[in-house]
Amino acid sequence: MDILETDAYDRRQRRNTSCALFFSLLPFFLSTALYFYLWTPDIPSSITNAGVKSAPALLLAAAVLSWNGGQSVLGVVGGLVFSAVGDFCLVWPELFLHGMGAFAVAHLLYSFTFLSSRYTAYSSSSWTRFLYLILFLFGGAFYIYLYPFLQKAPNSDLLVPGVGVYILLIVVMGTLAIRTGRTSTLLGSLIFMVSDLSLALQVFKVTAPMEHGHLVVMVTYYLAQLLIAVGDVRAVESKDDFAKWKRS
């Protein structure tokens, strides 16, 4: 009977936690909806536009900080803040390199987080090693495919090595997400790669302008950040639950 009561209590606790987490994410959802409501294809670059675009990432960082405290500042919270800086910069095409640099720092912080003790490493298998290989081969193939277009772009002397380093960082981040064995973290990282791939194809004029290209980039981007943030909150919760179980 005690076991059944404990199990029921745990289910209630998880349900209450999920509801509380949802409400803490409401500002993120509302700011994301506001961004899509206000965005139009001919919207001019402005401080206001940049602020609206970067607000969801900052509000997501605030939500994670409220749940995890300072232990995520040099992790997912920091990554979200740098992502917001990247969002702000990318509103102006001439600040593309600055935005890419900010997102590169975000991927580094995410990678360090996925290596931290609160993410229990998933036991490596032939299947996971195969996924690692696929990600690195895909990243390398995409860079080779993109290379001729990078050479034609302005600032190609900076873009050619810069994009190569950026692709390496996001592939490493995706690989470490696989290592965590957490579904939301893994999906968030992979969807982030899809978002960046879509952006690169459009920015470097690899494909013809797509009617809903911007929406594809931003929907996948915000979804990716949400999943990574939720994964980090869940990782800390799991660690705390395990610590309580050991002390009991």
Rank of each mutant, 00 (worst) to 15 (best):
E5L: 12
V230E: 01
Q151F: 04
I3A: 11
L90I: 14
S72L: 06
S72A: 15
T32V: 12
D196C: 08
L197T: 14
R179K: 15
D42S: 12
R247N: 06
G75V: 05
P148T: 09
S116Q: 06
L137N: 05
P41S: 09
V203P: 00
L108H: 03
F192S: 06
I134S: 08
G188Q: 03
L74E: 05
F96Q: 00
I178D: 00
H214R: 06
I170Q: 11
D241R: 13
I43V: 10
G70F: 12
Q225C: 05
G78V: 01
K152V: 01
D87W: 07
L201F: 13
C89T: 08
V85A: 13
S31E: 03
L80V: 01
L60Y: 08
Q71H: 03
I144E: 10
V171K: 07
G139D: 03
L190C: 07
N155E: 14
R11V: 10
K246V: 15
S198I: 11
M210E: 14
F130Q: 02
R179S: 12
S189Y: 03
S195D: 05
F29T: 00
C89L: 14
H98Y: 15
S72V: 03
F23M: 09
Y37C: 00
F142E: 14
A8M: 10
R11I: 10
L187N: 07
G101H: 04
S18T: 15
Q151T: 12
E237T: 10
T175V: 15
K53Y: 05
V219E: 01
H107W: 05
V81W: 04
M210W: 15
